[in-house]
Amino acid sequence: MFQIIGIVLLFGMVFGSYILAGGKMEVILHSLPYELMAILGAGVAAFMIGNSVSTIKATLGGFGKVFAGNKWKKKDYVDLLSLLFQLTKTMKSKGVIALESHIEKPAESAIFQKYPRIMKDHFAIDFICDTLRMMTMNLEDPHQIEDAMDKQLEKHHHEAQAGAHALQTMADGLPALGIVAAVLGVIKTMGSITEPPEVLGGMIGGALVGTFLGVFLAYGMVGPFAARLKEIVDGDHAFYKIIQSVLVAHLHGNAAQISIEIGRGDIPSGAQPSFAEMEETLTNAPAEA
């Protein structure tokens, strides 16, 4: 919602100030289709040249994220902590054998099935199950497991940031493409140097529209989209860091409730449940399905 308001405000302030200062939209509107073709078209072409198919798909999908906001809401964090509570509680009270059936086939697990939103995230499920599987294989050194989890998180985060990085690269190149379009306009103008001043003035004005559009699109549209997408990816990444916090705390020998409280403390403030809310949820959560 705020992104739509921001876009409307952006166009209103930029073009409104231009019109109020006495500027004529005819010059911009006349040159707009050609300049957009040269700048935005070239920008998209360069984007396709410089990125893989997977990155292009991730970038296109990222536009939806820009308007939808963060994937994980407060309820999802509560569900994640509840899921981890049941898994760690089962492991402590029943041992690793009781846990194996859940982590080997999470799709058939009565514990995992209670949280369909989390089940749809394959990385989250694999991250939880792979880490618990390492624990069942007698790899109980918290530092080794934390290091392995760090590497998985770093890899996943790097791949998730590909779309935002590609958009930012495109934004960095648009002002230069605007100059290219402007130079082409000047070349066209110089080829008509014998025309009267009023005609040449219109042609030079049209050429300068290219420079304007390149800078406007870069810093007013594409750059902010890239920054917003990066912010969302960083925010969603916090969800996976909670998994690491809870499981590492569990490895250090903490009770399940303590491990969950450590994880709750790492949840972003805007989505963080209170201690009382979490305690009530965990009180009603069975240790094993």
Rank of each mutant, 00 (worst) to 15 (best):
G205S: 08
A58Y: 00
D76Q: 15
F225G: 05
T88S: 07
S101P: 00
A227V: 14
S259P: 02
D126G: 15
I118F: 06
P116D: 07
Y219M: 06
D126M: 13
A227R: 12
T59R: 01
V233G: 02
A218I: 08
I258Q: 03
E35V: 15
I193P: 07
L9I: 15
P197E: 09
S31C: 02
T169P: 00
D121A: 08
N254Q: 13
G95Y: 05
I145N: 00
E288N: 13
S274M: 11
M221Y: 09
F127I: 06
K120H: 09
A166H: 01
Q86T: 14
K65Q: 11
G69W: 07
G210T: 06
M278D: 02
L99C: 07
N254W: 04
A271M: 14
A287Q: 10
L83M: 12
M137G: 08
K188A: 14
P142E: 09
A207W: 07
F15W: 12
F127K: 07
S54I: 04
G223M: 09
L10K: 05
G50W: 01
E288F: 15
G12D: 10
V44M: 01
I204Q: 06
G43Q: 03
L282K: 02
A107V: 09
H102G: 07
Q86H: 04
S245T: 14
I258E: 05
I258S: 02
L229R: 00
A226M: 02
G22S: 10
I4K: 11
L81A: 08
M135T: 10
A166W: 00
A181S: 11
E279Q: 14
N284Q: 14
G23Q: 08
A68D: 04
F225C: 03
P116N: 09
M149P: 03
G191C: 05
I56H: 01
E279N: 12
E198K: 14
A227Q: 13
K57M: 05
K155N: 07
K75T: 12
V248T: 07
I97V: 13
I242A: 09
K89I: 04
P33G: 09
G263V: 08
G61E: 02
H157V: 10
L83V: 09
M91Q: 13
Q168I: 05
E261G: 06
I4G: 04
I193T: 09
A38D: 04
I4S: 10
V14R: 09
G16Y: 11
I179H: 01
I5D: 10
G16S: 08
I267V: 14
G253C: 04
V199I: 11
E140P: 00
A207G: 11
G22C: 08
A166K: 03
L184R: 08
Y219S: 10
P286M: 13
E108N: 13
D126V: 07
V199Y: 03
A46Y: 00
